[in-house]
Deep mutational scan, measured.
Amino acid sequence: MQRVNMIMAESPGLITICLLGYLLSAECTVFLDHENANKILNRPKRYNSGKLEEFVQGNLERECMEEKCSFEEAREVFENTERTTEFWKQYVDGDQCESNPCLNGGSCKDDINSYECWCPFGFEGKNCELDVTCNIKNGRCEQFCKNSADNKVVCSCTEGYRLAENQKSCEPAVPFPCGRVSVSQTSKLTRAETVFPDVDYVNSTEAETILDNITQSTQSFNDFTRVVGGEDAKPGQFPWQVVLNGKVDAFCGGSIVNEKWIVTAAHCVETGVKITVVAGEHNIEETEHTEQKRNVIRIIPHHNYNAAINKYNHDIALLELDEPLVLNSYVTPICIADKEYTNIFLKFGSGYVSGWGRVFHKGRSALVLQYLRVPLVDRATCLRSTKFTIYNNMFCAGFHEGGRDSCQGDSGGPHVTEVEGTSFLTGIISWGEECAMKGKYGIYTKVSRYVNWIKEKTKLT
């Protein structure tokens, strides 16, 4: 034993070699072989497995989906700052455009905790909710729209109204504003409101030439003092309507412009014939205590009207009353817009006519005020429907199939267009061939041609 100890002390290297040989010859039971080890760690190889990531292109799944990435790591994937920024906006807080917040056709661009709407022409605001041009839906104005110097929408209202708090709607500024039905039992019968379409306001006024200088022999019209197929109006439903009495009662109609003036057809009036105007009328054979009678003290036909040349060209006249009318729910003026808007309103496509005229061709006159909704007829169809001249200051309205029309005794009465609950004068009943005849239409004086003249002559002093 002493000898062994001496050998170990003198030859430590020998001992180490012996131990190493023993270990190498022993069977290893701690580690699995290569094949079995792979069965336990069965993990798919990654895209760049075996390579240094710093030297390969980034992978979106590896960089940002398996674990949260930084902007720089995302930049490695896209290799483009702009594309990385677009991805980053949604990656950080989701897609803010998912709810489609942009209105009126706006395009949404996502941002971090926010979004941006790219608005089409005519709109602005956070969600493109603000109209900035009158060309689109009248700028959301209830009545009139004008573009300011910086191309912003400025709404306005006709006389007797003021802008509401929203700067879009119009509200009454006087007790009985024009064009409004205020009798409670008839307010439910107000005709369907007309909503502004998209309009090209630059070209809204037709490029028409008034044929002022045409000389033409007097034409022989049949029954051209021209509501057939209409309905009984309720008291106060058309408070701007008046009836004219002269040699015979209810020979023509008219509309209240203001307390002192009536507008009617020029062919209705004769110099030297006494005319009485009755406002607030409903049943011409009954006294309903809503009527107001006034005498006409002055007749002003349009300066281009000449019955000797043509009885229905420039067929418009103004009547001055001896005493002002007292405005109330049964006696209310009709609204008159400017030339541009009167023309736009007419193009809405349908209007209402009213009167006490004959209820059928050569038949009896109506006792109760009649009204009828009539569609506008395109000019080409209008011209083809008659052998008589249709001037540019006239328009056609009615039904091709016949059966409904204005008729004798309705002449001078109103053709009105309702705009968001307020009625505007767009025409004056003038003439036609018979009444409600198939293929024939009622012919009306186009008020847009005469609004400046009306307003100039009827100013209240």
Rank of each mutant, 00 (worst) to 15 (best):
residue 274 K to I: 06
residue 115 Y to H: 04
residue 323 E to Q: 13
residue 183 V to W: 10
residue 385 S to N: 10
residue 43 R to N: 15
residue 117 C to W: 00
residue 301 P to V: 10
residue 396 C to V: 02
residue 143 Q to G: 01
residue 388 F to C: 07
residue 202 V to L: 13
residue 165 E to Q: 12
residue 439 G to C: 05
residue 424 F to E: 01
residue 447 V to E: 00
residue 382 C to P: 02
residue 120 P to M: 05
residue 79 E to P: 15
residue 339 K to D: 07
residue 219 Q to F: 10
residue 444 Y to R: 01
residue 128 C to L: 00
residue 275 I to P: 05
residue 188 K to P: 15
residue 67 E to K: 05
residue 144 F to D: 01
residue 425 L to V: 01
residue 453 W to G: 00
residue 197 P to W: 07
residue 350 S to C: 06
residue 10 E to N: 15
residue 56 V to N: 15
residue 161 Y to W: 10
residue 297 I to F: 04
residue 92 V to P: 08
residue 258 N to V: 01
residue 203 N to W: 07
residue 62 R to Q: 15
residue 412 G to Q: 04
residue 41 L to R: 09
residue 330 Y to T: 02
residue 30 V to R: 14
residue 261 W to D: 00
residue 256 I to L: 04
residue 107 S to E: 14
residue 36 N to S: 11
residue 427 G to C: 01
residue 371 Y to N: 09
residue 432 G to N: 13
residue 271 T to E: 14
residue 218 T to E: 13
residue 222 N to P: 07
residue 37 A to N: 14
residue 95 D to A: 09
residue 244 L to A: 02
residue 276 T to Y: 05
residue 101 P to C: 00
residue 296 V to I: 06
residue 83 R to S: 15
residue 185 Q to V: 14
residue 395 F to V: 02
residue 72 E to R: 13
residue 37 A to D: 11
residue 233 A to F: 06
residue 450 Y to R: 01
residue 325 L to T: 00
residue 301 P to S: 08
residue 78 F to D: 09
residue 226 R to F: 07
residue 333 P to F: 00
residue 298 R to V: 03
residue 146 K to R: 11
residue 312 Y to W: 11
residue 53 E to F: 06
residue 91 Y to T: 04
residue 5 N to L: 13
residue 322 D to S: 06
residue 38 N to T: 15
residue 419 V to L: 07
residue 211 L to C: 09
residue 154 V to N: 08
residue 321 L to Q: 00
residue 358 R to L: 06
residue 304 N to F: 13
residue 220 S to E: 11
residue 126 K to S: 09
residue 303 H to P: 09
residue 296 V to M: 02
residue 111 D to A: 08
residue 121 F to S: 05
residue 207 A to P: 14
residue 193 E to A: 13
residue 337 A to T: 03
residue 181 V to Q: 12
residue 71 F to T: 15
residue 415 H to V: 03
residue 374 V to M: 09
residue 44 P to K: 04
residue 317 A to I: 02
residue 58 G to V: 13
residue 242 V to S: 02
residue 412 G to T: 11
residue 402 G to M: 15
residue 200 D to T: 07
residue 31 F to S: 15
residue 295 N to W: 04
residue 289 H to I: 08
residue 256 I to W: 01
residue 299 I to K: 07
residue 10 E to C: 14
residue 248 V to S: 11
residue 190 T to Y: 08
residue 165 E to R: 12
residue 336 I to S: 00
residue 286 E to V: 09
residue 32 L to K: 11
residue 398 G to M: 04
residue 336 I to M: 06
residue 283 N to I: 09
residue 112 I to P: 05
residue 293 K to T: 14
residue 140 R to C: 04
residue 227 V to I: 12
residue 332 T to P: 00
residue 135 N to A: 14
residue 28 C to M: 04
residue 354 S to H: 05
residue 96 Q to H: 14
residue 351 G to D: 01
residue 436 A to V: 05
residue 384 R to V: 07
residue 23 L to G: 02
residue 145 C to I: 02
residue 209 T to E: 12
residue 356 W to T: 05
residue 296 V to C: 03
residue 163 L to Q: 03
residue 238 F to Y: 04
residue 218 T to V: 10
residue 107 S to A: 08
residue 425 L to Q: 02
residue 260 K to S: 02
residue 82 E to C: 03
residue 318 L to C: 03
residue 434 E to P: 14
residue 285 E to A: 07
residue 161 Y to F: 10
residue 10 E to I: 15
residue 281 E to R: 10
residue 442 G to A: 15
residue 374 V to I: 08
residue 316 I to H: 01
